[in-house]
Simulated assay, not measured.
Amino acid sequence: MQDVLSSQITAPPPTTRKEQIIAGVRDSFSAGLGIFPLGIALGLLVVQAGLSWWLAPALSLAAFAGSLELLLVGMMASVTPLAAVALTVLVVNFRHVFYAFSFPLHLVRNRLAKAYAVYAMIDEAYAVNASLPVAERSAPRLLAMQLACQTYWVGGGLVGVAVGAALPAPIKGLEFALCALFTVLTLDAFRSRREIPSVLLAGASVAVALVLTPGVAMFTALLLFVALLLVRHALTARRSAPEAADA
């Protein structure tokens, strides 16, 4: 009886291309709840900074990276030197290099589709994909999820521009939406993988980076976190080797 109930509750994985695309769009809903309001915040910031409204969709298409776009709005408004902008882009988006190590780009065969998958490899797409069972991942599902996420972002930016133009006064504190979104995504990803040690290592990396290199804390924390994960992986592999030999 319990097996029958389990089979009814657990839905079979999508098999056809259409089912995979639908599943990818459904996968994007949880991230979309944060992406769309964050896109609205971007549009509002563009308008409140006195920049042209078309910068919101232009940034969303040319540099599909929420945290970077929010920073670029302020830097463009204050006419920040190009060298500082380039360094900021490197530090903020350097984490995407590490995403590529475990993001299933090998599933995408078409060159143009793979190029888009690399371009749209944002934090939310990585977190959502990481929570999926390996057997249920596919290229149509991955690309559909990424396309849906970008649609939420561009659409939210346009809504934010319209709302910002209609408001009589600016709204403060919109930048916190980015921090809140990252916090929710991080908790959800680690809860699904039960990686409590990784959470502790990430916290330790941030603490050390803030003390040693407060000016480039994110860059230092990422490098330190990757080094600690490699050490943990080596120790885990060393402990599991004798067990596998005994078995």
Rank of each mutant, 00 (worst) to 15 (best):
Q2R: 14
D3R: 15
V4K: 15
S6W: 00
S6V: 15
T10Y: 06
A11Y: 11
P12G: 07
P13D: 11
P14H: 03
T16I: 13
R17L: 10
K18D: 08
I21S: 03
I21D: 01
V25F: 06
S28N: 07
S28D: 06
F29V: 15
F29Q: 05
I35V: 14
L44G: 00
L45P: 03
L45S: 13
V47H: 00
A58G: 08
L59A: 05
S60C: 13
S60Y: 06
L61D: 11
A62I: 13
A65N: 02
A65F: 02
A65H: 00
A65G: 10
G66S: 03
V73S: 00
M76K: 01
A77D: 04
A77K: 05
S78C: 05
V79E: 13
A83P: 05
V85H: 00
A86V: 14
V91K: 03
V92A: 03
R95F: 07
H96F: 12
V97R: 02
Y99C: 07
Y99G: 03
F103H: 08
P104S: 06
H106A: 15
N110K: 08
A117S: 15
V118D: 02
Y119S: 10
M121E: 08
M121T: 10
D123Q: 07
E124Q: 13
A125V: 04
S131V: 12
L132F: 00
L132G: 04
R137G: 06
S138I: 04
A139H: 03
R141W: 04
R141Y: 04
L143I: 11
A144P: 06
M145H: 06
A148Q: 00
V154S: 01
L158I: 15
G160R: 01
A165R: 15
A166R: 06
L167S: 07
G173M: 07
E175N: 10
A177M: 10
C179T: 15
F182V: 05
L187N: 09
A189K: 01
R191I: 06
S192Y: 08
R194Q: 11
E195G: 14
I196T: 14
I196Y: 14
L201N: 01
L201D: 04
A202Y: 04
A204R: 05
V206Y: 05
V208C: 10
V208N: 03
L212C: 12
G215S: 11
A217T: 12
T220N: 09
A221I: 00
L223E: 09
L223P: 12
L224Q: 00
V226M: 09
A227D: 08
V231H: 09
R232C: 10
T236D: 12
R238C: 08
R239M: 09
S240F: 02
S240K: 12
P242Y: 04
P242M: 09
A245Y: 10
D246K: 13
A247M: 08
